[in-house]
């Protein structure tokens, strides 16, 4: 007990009884009813697949998916993956894809959020327009960008030619040197608006009085941003960066539809690679092992994600 003046009077009273975990669980049994339906659905469609993926990753499976014929092969699938040069190539491309997409989407989103923060005529319309790529399906985005990049009739090549920067159309996506970067542009186009709204909401939490105080103290716009605005954005920036990174890490549609990972695997990232292994080459066991590796990487990222999301959550009291 802490020392508090006056406590002497009460020193001899007994401690209240302690309640154990099972008692606590029993006491909150009705609370669980609220979450039960959600948990049951998630258990079937998430718990089971995760378990099954892990199991399959230790087996050699026949292409036919006649799983009664699967053979246990220990860590063979993992050894196959980790010793394959393709794995390291795809991993490097995945890192490039994730890091570059996340960085540029975040920076463009930040710029847009700052520029949109101040009230001006047409701001609402502008914000809505800038949000459209994020709402439009990735399938639609992939097709239209594929058309824009088209090697013969692409609008981008045509524009660059008209401006005089190039002489003949560029083959953006059928080129092992540029395909990955061309896809990153599409991905950034699709995702920067997400960073933008998150950061716009974050900017609203920056107290005006602080900015004004900094202005009175003679801080330049840049100093105001760096010393007042930026520190307030840190929390939401963390969440945004993590969500973007996770989303990019898990990308499938854009590379799959636009290049299928090609040409020559130059735009292959983990997810497209796993998909090909499983549904293209029917190597279910190896694909599962891949998925497990991915899973472990995501668990680490996931830890930080949830920590960023639930920070300060328990501080809010409730009955």
């Amino acid at each position: 007990m802490s020392t508090v003046p006056g406590q002497a009077i009460f020193r001899d009273v007994p401690e209240p009884r302690r309640i154990g975990l099972s008692q606590k669980v029993w006491n909150s049994r009705f609370d669980y009813l609220y979450v039960a339906p959600a948990l049951i659905v998630m258990l079937i469609v998430i718990g089971y697949p995760i378990y099954y993926t892990i199991e399959l990753s230790f087996f050699n499976t026949p292409a036919s998916l006649a799983l009664s014929a699967k053979q246990f092969n220990g860590l063979d699938n993992y050894v196959t993956i980790l010793t394959s040069p393709v794995f390291w190539k795809v991993t490097w491309q995945t890192v490039l894809w994730t890091v570059l997409s996340t960085f540029f989407a975040f920076m463009i989103g930040l710029g847009a959020a700052l520029a949109l923060h101040r009230e001006f005529a047409g701001r609402g319309v502008l914000r809505a327009l800038l949000l459209i790529p994020w709402v439009v399906s990735a399938v639609a985005a992939s097709y239209v960008w594929k058309w824009l990049y088209h090697s013969d009739f692409g609008a981008i090549s045509a524009m660059l030619t008209q401006v005089g920067w190039i002489d003949k159309p560029i083959n953006f996506i059928d080129n092992t040197n540029t395909s990955l970067y061309a896809l990153i542009v599409v991905n950034v186009w699709k995702e920067f608006s997400f960073a933008m709204i998150m950061l716009m909401a974050g900017l609203q939490t920056v107290p005006d009085t602080l900015l004004r105080a900094a202005q009175v103290d003679g801080a330049s716009p840049w100093q105001r941003f760096w010393h007042v605005t930026f520190p307030h954005l840190q929390g939401v920036s963390m969440v945004t960066l993590l969500l973007l990174a996770v989303q990019n890490f898990n990308s499938f549609i854009i590379p799959w539809i636009m290049t299928g990972g090609g040409p020559a695997g130059s735009s292959d990232i983990w997810i497209t690679h796993i998909y090909q292994l499983a549904f293209g080459r029917q190597r279910w066991g190896v694909a599962s092992a891949y998925a497990v590796i991915l899973f472990i990487v995501m668990m680490v990222l996931g830890y930080f994600y949830v920590r960023a999301l639930t920070k300060g959550d328990d501080a809010r009291a409730a009955g």
Binding site: F252, W270, A291, L294
Partner: peptide
Amino acid sequence: MFPAVVFLVP
């Protein structure tokens, strides 16, 4: 956090 692909096969 998990990509759809992790769940796809099972």
